[in-house]
Design a protein around this nucleic acid. Structure first.
Length: 488
RNA sequence: CGGGGAGUAGCGCAGUCCGGUAGCGCAUUCGCUUUGGGAGCGAAGGGUCGCAGGUUCAAAUCCUGUCUCCCCGACCA
């Protein structure tokens, strides 16, 4: 039978789409740029949500929900912010349809008095509420997160990486001091780093964005950036220090202990279903999806093998005992006892779905009191004794999680370069790609020139101090090397 | 939004140039045989050819418009 997944070396972009299709993660929708997230993809997202949500709560945040629609006037209050989003907003202008001979049309009489914007992000509608909630320093901080969908009218889309509607979480906090808000911004950046590395097994670089890459309305935008298998960078999460910009725009003041009226300090931070795209392009291979055990909807699949009815009963009993033992350790397990498919077919299907570990159990194994373990990440198969199988599986899942991180880490390290001249920079970006550290003079002009000439952008300025030097383009002084890459 | 490619059964495709009864592989359903890396034989079901107009005795095929997808740009999480 023909291979259904294009090889990465042949056509990376086609491979990505094939992996999503074969892994049953998502379909295209009839609406341009939107996607249907299928049960496999949504279960993955739910696991990501659960882990993140717990981390948010552990750092003192609460969930709330604000409306999908934002009055148009709200978006014009913060100049930088509106400029950033104006070109990609969906606008609701009417409230009714009416029947016609061949369908329906918009009822012109239902034109809205004030048009509504489908949220591209919720800063404005949330800060409108915060104004009412905040009077005194005793009302602060406010630490709120919401899980929501947002819409940005993108020109060019890709499943998970950039869709017009996407799912995300957005945290919005209000503080009485600048220091506390900055600390919050950095804390959430660390939460994202921890989540990416420990749950997704996806190593990231952290840093602060340059002015041109900064979130509209932010004072500072911090980010986590990862490097994918095609050596392109992906911004995987952002955390913004918003200063007093939104407090001023929405007139949100509090009375301090000293009795002074001061503007509130703000942050916002978010990660989206884009993370799933990053996850796919970090670990998956030519057989399909590879998922880290901590997030995989199913961590283990059992494929039973039998010939006679008698064997079938025997094998399924043997499987059930093992399932009970794995259940006791809270391992997410699925038994694939479908009778109309051959074992080989199932192997391929579960590999394409990215299930981290497969147990194959047939008469031969029962005879010898064994189980066959097959790792999805390495495709290694091993026969192990049935005794203590749950412990072995549990440990092996941990090992797979660690190995995925390590192999991604090695790949990223091998593709992270440091250069001193622009010629060298151009050579690396053109022939190898990957992350490149280089000196930059700090001006938007130089950044733009580099982007025009090489398609590489500054992904972030590292937080830790680096060695001083000279800009690779202009020779002007540079405080430290910054991280460049071609990016999605 | 500009340039290029594509849309025919659930998936992958042929047929389109040159108009004339809509096909192939896989998948699906039923039966039997099978089952340790995408099983075999037999039978069956499934398509307003993306959508809307037009030309024609006749349109998957020609013309116009439109929607969606992919690639390359500009823009962006």
């Amino acid at each position: 039978m023909a291979k259904k997944i294009t090889k990465r070396t042949e056509d990376f972009s086609q491979w990505y789409q094939d992996v999503i299709r074969e892994g049953k993660l998502a379909d295209h929708s009839p609406v341009r740029g939107c996607m249907v997230i299928r049960p496999n993809g949504y279960a993955l997202w739910e696991n990501m949500q659960d882990s993140l949500d717990q981390m948010f709560k552990d750092t003192g945040h609460e969930n709330a929900y604000f409306p999908l629609f934002i009055p148009k006037s709200f978006l014009s209050k913060e100049a930088q912010h509106v400029e950033g989003f104006a070109k990609e907003c969906a606008v609701v202008t009417h409230s009714r349809l009416q029947s016609t001979d061949d369908g329906v049309e918009v009822d012109p009489d239902s034109k809205l008095g004030e048009e509504l914007i489908v949220r591209p992000t919720s800063e404005t509608i949330i800060w409108d509420s915060y104004r009412d909630w905040i009077q005194s320093y005793r009302d602060l901080p406010i630490l709120i997160n919401q899980w929501a969908n947002v819409v940005r009218w993108e020109m060019r889309t890709r499943l998970f990486l950039r869709t017009m509607e996407f799912l995300w979480q957005e945290g919005h906090t209000a503080h009485s001091t600048k220091e506390e808000a900055v600390e919050e911004t950095r804390q959430m950046l660390e939460v994202y780093r921890t989540f990416a590395e420990e749950y997704m097994a996806m190593p990231v670089k952290t840093g602060v964005k340059t002015e041109s890459e900064r979130f509209a309305g932010a004072v500072d935008t911090y980010c986590i950036e990862t490097l994918l298998q095609d050596n392109k960078a992906l911004q995987a999460g952002t955390s913004h220090f918003l200063g007093q910009n939104f407090a001023k725009a929405f007139d949100v003041k509090f009375q301090s202990a000293e009795g002074e009226h001061e503007y509130v300090w703000a942050t916002s931070w978010g990660v989206s279903t884009r993370l799933i795209g990053g996850l796919i392009m970090t670990h998956s291979d030519d057989q399909g999806l590879v998922l880290p055990p901590k997030l995989a909807p199913n961590q283990v699949v059992i494929v039973p093998i039998w010939k006679s009815d008698e064997q079938q009963e025997q094998v399924l009993d043997y499987c059930q005992e093992i399932i009970d033992e794995l259940d006791a350790l809270n391992i997410r397990i699925k038994l694939d006892d479908r009778e109309n498919m051959s074992p080989g077919w199932k192997f391929n299907e579960h590999e394409a779905a990215g299930i981290p570990l497969r147990l194959t159990i047939g008469p031969r194994d029962i005879e010898n009191n064994n189980v066959e373990l097959a790792r999805r990440d390495t495709l290694d198969k091993n026969i192990v004794s049935r005794e203590g199988i749950a412990q072995k599986v549990d440990e092996l899942l941990d090992t797979i999680q660690d190995d995925l991180y390590e192999s991604a880490q090695n790949r990223i390290q091998e593709n992270t370069h440091s250069v001193d001249s622009y010629d060298e920079f151009k050579d690396v970006i053109e022939n190898e790609g990957g992350f490149i550290y280089a000196h930059w003079d700090g001006t938007a002009e130089t950044e733009e020139k580099i982007k025009d000439e090489t398609k590489a952008t500054i992904r972030c300025i590292p937080l830790e101090d680096g060695e001083e030097g000279e800009c690779m383009v202009t020779g002007e002084p540079s405080k430290q090397k910054v991280l460049f890459a071609r990016a999605y």
